[in-house]
Amino acid sequence: MAEGDAGSDQRQNEEIEAMAAIYGEEWCVIDDCAKIFCIRISDDIDDPKWTLCLQVMLPNEYPGTAPPIYQLNAPWLQGQERADLSNSLEEIYIQNIGESILYLWVEKIRDVLIQKSQMTEPGPDVKKKTEEEDIECEDDLILACQPENPVKALDFDVSENRTIEIEELPPIDHGIPITDRRSTFQAHLAPVVCPKQVKMVLAKLYENKKIASATHNIYAYRIYCEDKQTFLQDCEDDGETAAGGRLLHLMEILNVKNVMVVVSRWYGGILLGPDRFKHINNCARNILVEKNYTSSPEESSKTLGKNKKCSWSDGLSENPGVSICSYVLK
Score class of each variant (00 low, 15 high):
L102C: 12
A243G: 01
D180R: 02
D157P: 03
T241F: 03
C28N: 14
E136K: 00
I135W: 00
K309P: 05
I114D: 15
A34N: 08
E299M: 12
T303N: 07
K228T: 09
Q146W: 14
D173Q: 12
D43C: 03
C53R: 14
K306E: 13
W312R: 06
F277H: 01
E138L: 03
L250P: 01
R82W: 11
L54N: 08
D180M: 01
V259E: 14
L205E: 13
L189H: 13
H174C: 08
I114N: 13
K152N: 08
N96F: 04
Q78E: 15
Y62C: 04
F156K: 14
C325P: 04
P75I: 13
L250I: 09
L77T: 15
A203R: 07
M19A: 02
R265A: 00
V198N: 04
R11T: 12
V198S: 05
P191L: 10
N161S: 08
D140L: 04
K306G: 02
D237T: 08
C235F: 00
D84M: 09
I178V: 09
D139Q: 06
V263C: 03
L102E: 13
E81R: 10
K257W: 00
Y293A: 09
A144N: 10
G79S: 14
A20W: 11
K196M: 04
K152C: 01
A220E: 14
H188W: 04
G4E: 14
L102A: 10
E160Y: 11
V259A: 02
S86I: 15
S183P: 00
Q12C: 02
Q78A: 13
K49C: 07
S300C: 09
V201D: 08
I223R: 01
L102F: 11
L254W: 00
R285N: 14
R182S: 04
L232A: 06
D173C: 06
T179W: 01
G315P: 01
D111L: 11
Q78K: 10
R222N: 07
K308G: 08
V193N: 02
G64H: 12
S42T: 14
E99P: 03
A220S: 11
A214S: 13
E15W: 00
I164H: 07
I287N: 10
E15D: 03
A21H: 06
D314Q: 13
L154T: 12
D46M: 11
L58I: 10
V328A: 08
K228R: 00
I270E: 01
M19Y: 02
C225F: 05
M119E: 15
E121P: 12
E165M: 11
D125V: 09
I287Q: 11
I94P: 05
T51Y: 02
M1H: 06
N161G: 08
A21Q: 06
D43R: 05
A21M: 07
E132Q: 10
E121T: 14
L104H: 11
S117V: 03
G79P: 09
D155G: 10
T303A: 07
I30D: 06
E15Y: 00
C137Y: 02
K278D: 09
R285T: 10
G239L: 02
A220R: 05
C38V: 11
R40Y: 02
G64P: 13
K330L: 06
D157N: 12
D84Q: 15
S317T: 12
